[in-house]
């Protein structure tokens, strides 16, 4: 009986006796993941501020999301953004076989759709400002503009990053650095879709957008 117990105990490995070899790609993606978590806290702060200012007193007589924002237009933006994320994600599957063409196509389509998303967002904000409902009109509008603009700015940076990677995969090939950057770009773009889910559901749909 005692012998059996010892045998069973010996088969259990509670830890790895040897140190892992250094893995720069995992270290980079994990470090970037930590950045994304802190980026998420920035959006959490903006959404908290929006929730606090989402009342008629803070709107100071100006219209709010229910009249300013279009739920259907927001849903079109959602589809465009999901399309950009899907294109980039499918493009990075080319890394598995070293296919530059597929990856380049994914990056290009993602950058194009990302540009459409940003253009739609900026056009919406511009129309609001032109109608006298700009960011200086009320505390509510200041927060709404900052929240939507911050997300759009993230997407614009993602588009720029995609274009840079488009150049790098042809100039440097699939080096360790380039692969690490591509994995981080995929994480970054996918994370922006997750943030938009929260923004669309809360600001647009809970806000009663028409």
């Amino acid at each position: 009986m005692a012998h059996e117990t010892m045998t069973a105990d010996a088969a259990v490995r509670l830890w790895n006796a040897e140190a892992d070899e250094h893995d720069p790609i995992s270290a980079r993606t994990y470090g970037f993941w930590l950045y994304l978590m802190s980026d998420g806290l920035i959006f959490a702060s903006l959404i908290a501020a929006y929730a606090v200012l989402d009342n008629k007193m803070s709107a100071f007589g100006h219209p709010m999301a229910d009249t300013l924002l279009s739920a259907s237009q927001g849903f079109v933006q959602t589809l465009v953004l999901l399309g950009a994320v899907l294109a980039l994600s499918l493009g990075t599957l080319g890394l598995k076989t070293g296919a530059r063409g597929g990856l380049a196509l994914g990056l290009a389509v993602s950058a194009a759709l990302g540009t459409v998303f940003v253009a739609q967002g900026l056009a919406g904000l511009d129309a609001m400002a032109a109608a006298g409902n700009g960011p200086t009109a009320s505390a509510y509008l200041s927060c709404l503009f900052v929240l939507l603009f911050t997300h759009g700015l993230h997407l614009a940076i993602g588009v720029l990053w995609s274009l840079v990677m488009l150049v790098q995969i042809f100039r440097f090939g699939f080096t360790q650095d380039v692969v690490g950057r591509l994995l981080n770009l995929r994480l970054y773009t996918q994370f922006q879709a997750a943030v938009w889910v929260v923004v669309y559901l809360y600001v647009y749909l809970f806000g009663g957008a028409h």
Partner: peptide, 27 residues
């Protein structure tokens, strides 16, 4: 997290993605 970093395309994070997963998540 151990892997051969001299072959970046063989990294687990490169190899983990599939088209079905990405399309499924989007849909």
């Amino acid at each position: 997290m151990a892997t051969d970093h001299y072959q970046p395309l063989q990294h687990p994070e490169v190899q983990q993605g599939t088209a079905l997963r990405y399309v499924g998540a989007t849909v």
